[in-house]
Simulated scan of single mutants.
Amino acid sequence: MKYSIILTISFVFLFAVNVSAQSQKDSLAIKQAALDYIESQHNAKPTQFERSAHPRMVKRTFWTDKKTGKEYLRETFRDAMILLAETYNKDGSRFPKNPKKEVVILDIYDKTASIKLIADDWIDYMHIVKLNGKWQIVNVLWQLNDSKDH
């Protein structure tokens, strides 16, 4: 009986510590970083992307070489993503009228977070870090919904 009570109190204490490590403000800022990332492409607003991404952000995916059929890892950096945000949907034809942009927070621990962004044609897994009071994306791993299109 004593063991059960101690275990219950320990569990409650550990749960309370984890919950207090994140605030509603942090959750909203993390979600906003992910939304700025995708909405910058929807709206062709590179400054919106810039505020969401740390200067050393890296985005990766797998790709298939058409000649050899071998898969390899492709990397894109923040500067290229800023240009993409400016040009990718400039004519407004790349996304549906009401594009999908579902943000799922997978985990938050103190100053780091993992999220999943579900868009129309792909998903992004992101690592977001809080530096100097600001949440910014540092890593993105993405894939198209149909991996054969890579």
Rank of each mutant, 00 (worst) to 15 (best):
M1K: 07
M1A: 12
Y3R: 12
S4Q: 14
S4H: 09
L7N: 08
S10R: 06
L14K: 06
A16E: 05
V17Y: 02
V19E: 03
S20G: 01
Q22L: 08
Q22Y: 09
Q24I: 14
K25F: 03
K31R: 10
L35K: 14
D36K: 01
Y37P: 02
I38T: 10
I38E: 10
I38P: 02
N43S: 12
F49E: 01
F49G: 06
E50M: 12
E50S: 11
S52V: 04
H54Y: 07
H54T: 06
R56E: 15
M57I: 01
K59C: 06
R60F: 00
R60L: 02
T61Y: 07
W63F: 12
W63A: 13
T64Q: 10
D65M: 05
K66T: 12
K67H: 03
T68A: 10
G69H: 14
G69A: 03
L73R: 15
R74F: 11
T76N: 03
T76W: 00
R78G: 01
R78V: 01
A80G: 04
M81E: 08
I82P: 04
A85E: 02
E86I: 04
E86W: 10
Y88I: 13
N89K: 01
N89C: 00
G92R: 03
G92P: 11
S93L: 08
R94I: 05
P96F: 00
K97V: 05
K97M: 01
K101A: 15
E102Y: 09
V104Q: 13
I105Q: 08
I105M: 10
I105N: 08
D110V: 13
D110T: 15
K111S: 04
T112K: 13
T112M: 14
L117V: 10
L117E: 00
L117P: 04
L117T: 05
D120E: 04
D120L: 03
D121H: 10
W122P: 01
I123S: 11
M126N: 11
H127Q: 15
L131C: 09
L131K: 12
I137W: 02
I137Y: 03
V138D: 05
N139H: 13
L141A: 14
W142M: 02
Q143H: 15
D146T: 00
D149E: 12
